[in-house]
Amino acid sequence: MTRTNLMLCASLAAFGFAASAANADKLTLYCSAEEEWCQAMARGFEDATGIDVNMTRKSSGETFAQLRAEASNPKGDIWWGGTGDPHLQAAEAGLSQEYISPMRDQLHPWAIAQAESAGNRTIGIYSGALGYGYNNDLLAANNLPEPACWKDLLKPEYKGHVQMANPNSSGTAYTTLASMVQLFGEDEGFEFMKGLHANINQYTKSGSAPIKAAGRGETTIGIVFMHDAVAQAVAGFPVTVVAPCEGTGYEIGSMSIIEGARNLEEAQKFYDWALTAEAQNLSLEVNSFQVMSNVNAQASDKAPDMSKINLIDYDFVKYGSSDERKRLLQKWDEEVSVLPQ
């Protein structure tokens, strides 16, 4: 019996340990960038300040859903990374709070514009242009021409070769939808999505999954943000990155302090720290090729050169709003997703 007792004690102790929380300064970070980058940010902040960071990585859509679920009783402090739209929606819904960082004078104008369009409830931390990537080996094996424009993807020979995320679950895919609507006009944009639908082999749940599948050779073409495609190429996968000839939309990865944050002071410290050039240079260590918002941050030579990409004038306020988003997604659901493939 003593052994049983011993075991009971041990397990109770384990239980106690599991449920106890550190009493030191802490910060609960919701992170919507790539896992490695999230880890680097969390550990980097711990090293810089000694504040314990509890980090959960979830896609921006999932995090936004979680913020809404926890609205009456927020559990997170700060939300870092992920495409800007859900951050704007969160600001619109009052789920994030206003903060003006002393670091602002070091930022690119687009980062501050993002903040101003949301009443200073969010701020830009990086930006990246939409595009696609293809697997060189598979393209050659299937004797397919090299695509260079959005409309190339509609050609029948690419049937079953294109992958993109589901706009209902992924911010990347919603940016694609909104970009097409802005690039071609709403009617033609939806015609484009319908044509694309015929060639799609799978709508993935997560935004960067298509280019990962392409890297691994599980699909030929993946529609993603170009920096994600670059990351796959750098990781050693046979991927070529395409900046579509018609021009393209882009995202502004953002950061927001959650309304009702339990560790507000720590959240603000993180906010300021995350806007410094040192913190933003961490992106290079984890192979993230976005353009960072601090003007002094280093740029990777592998990153897509934003000045050479034909960027549309993306209307973040309109297409980031909940109503417009809901309308477009519903239209996509009803008119595109139900078509036979």
């Binding site: 859509g61 936004f64 859903a65 859900p86 679950s169 992924s170 799978q202």
Partner: peptide, 20 residues
């Protein structure tokens, strides 16, 4: 699953997906 959706994954994405 690819495009073959089943109840357990649909439940998950109904809760955590953007449609919430």
């Amino acid at each position: 699953g690819g495009n073959f959706n089943v109840l357990s994954t649909e439940i998950f994405f109904a809760i955590v997906g953007a449609q919430y």
